[in-house]
Design a protein around this nucleic acid. Structure first.
Length: 284
DNA sequence: TCCCAGGACTACT
DNA sequence: AGTAGTCCTGGG
């Protein structure tokens, strides 16, 4: 990887498969915000960073070199060859269209606990509301970074919150799920690192033990924070685009899972991201 | 006012 | 085993 560190800015040269808009607006994360200049600022762990692209170069502000190589090379999944993945995925014209449209998508490697809570909040919810809730949870129960930015809460701190305190963050009926998830981890010994080490099916079974986590949320948690890609999170958007482009009619979740497993196998998670982004940006 | 949104749960057959 | 109704919240 061609990396230059100069005057507090990290520059990655020739990043065709890294488009900030695609990465941060493909539905995987909720703490990145587009600024008026087209750059994106995000809170990741205790870091606040700004990312933008000029020509084919990615620029990252807010990190020292050491933090970048120790933490963010992994976070941005920079060691993965997306050209190869995209080549393998383009086995039909529909996926070709979606991959070309979301060319710069990368699947971030996010924190397990933050992803679990974030996607519990996502159930039957809208993105702005999800982002707002996460921001409030962080402000109320996370460590302060600056006056404007707070870390996502640690399990131990969020576990101390009452249901009504969690509700006050705007999460609605999901407050009890959030509290229960924290307590399951703290009191019942549920270990997300251990769960992540299990193979996909077993991992899903364990995640679904959390109240408020069903098939779709579990698959998102695995895809976005547990390095599992042999799955196909199927929300209404993905269901809709599969029905309209592949099935040419109504079908059910199981049929879509079977279809995706057959067609995309171990790359299902990537395929889902290109389909989802295309579907949502084009309002299919 | 009603409807619904990036699902899951509960209470029914 | 499979399926309606319900759920906080807030924007159309």
């Amino acid at each position: 990887m061609d990396m230059i560190f100069n005057d507090g800015v990290i520059t990655l040269k020739n990043q065709e498969s890294f488009e900030p808009k695609h990465v941060f607006e493909c539905g995987q994360c909720f703490r990145w915000k587009a600024l008026d200049d087209g750059s994106y600022t995000g809170v990741v762990d205790k870091y606040i960073l700004n990312v933008f692209k000029v020509d084919n170069d990615i620029h990252i502000k807010g990190l020292d070199e050491r933090t970048f190589s120790d933490f963010f090379v992994n976070y941005f999944d920079l060691k993965t060859n997306y050209d190869k993945i995209k080549k393998e995925l383009i086995i039909d014209d529909i996926m070709k269209t979606c991959v070309e449209f979301g060319n710069g998508i990368r699947i971030l490697k996010q924190d397990k606990f933050e992803t679990l809570i974030s996607f519990i909040i996502s159930a039957n919810n809208r993105i702005p509301m999800i982002a707002r809730s996460i921001k409030e949870l962080s402000k109320n129960f996370g460590q302060r970074i600056t006056d404007d930015y707070y870390m996502f809460p640690k399990v131990i701190d969020l576990a101390k919150a009452s249901i009504s305190e969690i509700e006050a963050c705007g999460v609605g009926f999901r407050a009890k799920y959030i509290q229960a998830a924290c307590q399951k981890i703290i009191n019942e010994g549920y270990d997300l690192d251990y769960i992540a080490s299990l193979e996909t099916h077993k991992c899903r079974e364990e995640l679904i033990e959390f109240a408020g986590v069903g098939p779709k949320v579990s698959d998102c948690v695995m895809l976005f924070s547990m390095n599992k890609y042999d799955l196909f999170p199927t929300d209404v958007w993905v269901k809709r685009i599969c029905e309209s482009l592949y099935f040419k009619g109504e079908t059910n979740i199981n049929s879509i899972h079977d279809f995706a497993k057959e067609k995309y196998g171990n790359l299902g998670g990537y395929a889902q991201q290109y389909l989802f982004y295309y579907a949502r940006e084009n309002k299919i």
